[in-house]
């Protein structure tokens, strides 16, 4: 067996040929990991019609793209994707395989890892390369992937290592890895693969599919004004919308506000919503549960408005306004309008 370690692979998720943001975030992170390991960054790109996407992947920094095209890969179902990926992994043995922790990634990753008898860590929020000294089993590992994720409802952060044979497989939360700028001068290799998909894999038939655009794409927002249970009611969310509109931002919400039915789930920030890192995050009437903070604490500037000085949201805030949002928000709108 050769000692040469495999490359870093990223599963590229697409819908109708459009590459998911999280996949590009993972290409950025994958390049960083590959540089540390001295290996290449490679994409596995599967679907029915992938024309156009390959250049994008090269621009974001993939040295090689395995382009797996087949009509049997559209619409997405798990088994044909899993079979194609498992075949490729067995042939090339990558060191690391990254999936986005989207609905698709979270149903596909486990199927792939189970068949390969590999470890899998879900929903990572950070990845690093480090050595691992397994004191329990008295074994040392060099240059392993540190798979960092929250657990226990976000109350702990665990660092997990896969000690079996490569690849080290993880799913990674969308929005947490920084997206590098593409460089259109970058070129790379494209390897076209005809997958061997048989009737064993095409047993799940999609009969109907209804998909709507999200009401709001918070991950793309630079300014987010979020409301929590302290907003007090659906009608009062108008204040949050007013401030967001004045500042040129979008509206977010805590789980409590969504569960109360005041605003749609598309707006939810946090562990069961989206992870965001805008330039400015204004938390209005949000107590700041650990689950909420997990989704916004990397924002560049955080303003917390809350009547309770002990609210945990203040622990991650840069500015704290201890007061009633019903009085503070109109003052903010007035102040902003008078200055711009």
């Amino acid at each position: 067996m050769s000692n040469k370690i495999g490359n870093v692979w990223i599963f590229i998720e697409q819908e109708g040929g459009k590459i998911a943001n999280v996949s590009l975030e993972l290409v950025s992170k994958g390049r960083e990991l590959a540089a540390k390991l001295g290996v290449a960054t490679e994409a596995i790109f599967l679907g029915g019609d992938l024309s156009g996407g390959v250049d994008t992947l090269h621009h974001y920094g993939c040295d090689k793209v395995y382009m797996v095209e087949s009509g049997k890969l559209e619409p997405f179902t798990v088994l044909p994707y899993a079979k194609s990926i498992v075949d490729l992994v067995k042939e090339h043995r990558p060191n690391i395989l990254l999936f986005g922790a989207t609905n698709k990634g979270r149903e596909l990753g486990p199927r792939v890892a189970s068949e390969l008898m590999c470890g899998l860590t879900a929903d990572c929020t950070d990845l690093q390369i480090d050595d691992f000294d397994d004191k329990v089993n008295k074994k040392q590992y060099k240059n392993k992937l540190m798979q960092i994720r929250p657990a226990f409802g976000g109350n702990i952060i665990a660092t997990i290592v896969n000690t079996w044979e490569d690849p080290q497989i993880v799913t990674v939360r969308p929005g947490v890895m920084k997206l590098d700028d593409p460089d259109t001068s970058r070129k790379g290799v494209c390897v076209k693969i005809k997958p061997e998909i048989t009737s064993t894999e095409t047993v799940v038939n999609v009969i109907e599919r209804v998909q709507q655009e999200k009401e709001v794409d918070l991950q793309a927002s630079q300014i987010i004004v979020s409301g929590g249970y302290g907003v007090g009611g659906q009608a009062n969310f108008k204040l949050i919308y007013d401030l967001a509109k004045t500042l040129g931002g979008d509206v977010g919400a805590s789980r409590a506000a969504v569960d109360a039915g005041w605003i749609d789930h598309d707006h939810q920030v946090g562990q069961t919503g989206v992870t965001v890192r805008p330039k400015l995050y204004i938390a209005c009437g949000i107590s700041g549960s650990i689950q909420h903070r997990a989704g916004m604490s990397d924002s560049s500037k955080i303003i917390a408005i809350n009547t309770d000085p002990d609210a945990p949201i203040f622990s991650c805030a840069h500015y704290g306004v201890i007061g009633d949002l019903n009085e503070v928000i109109p003052k903010m709108i007035k102040a902003f309008k008078s200055k711009v």
Partner: peptide, 20 residues
């Protein structure tokens, strides 16, 4: 195959914000 290397609790850091 997966081993836990370490576990950190998420502690609230001291309130180091600017009071407005």
């Amino acid at each position: 195959p997966t081993k836990v290397k370490n576990i950190q609790s998420v502690v609230l850091t001291g309130a180091d914000f600017k009071v407005v």
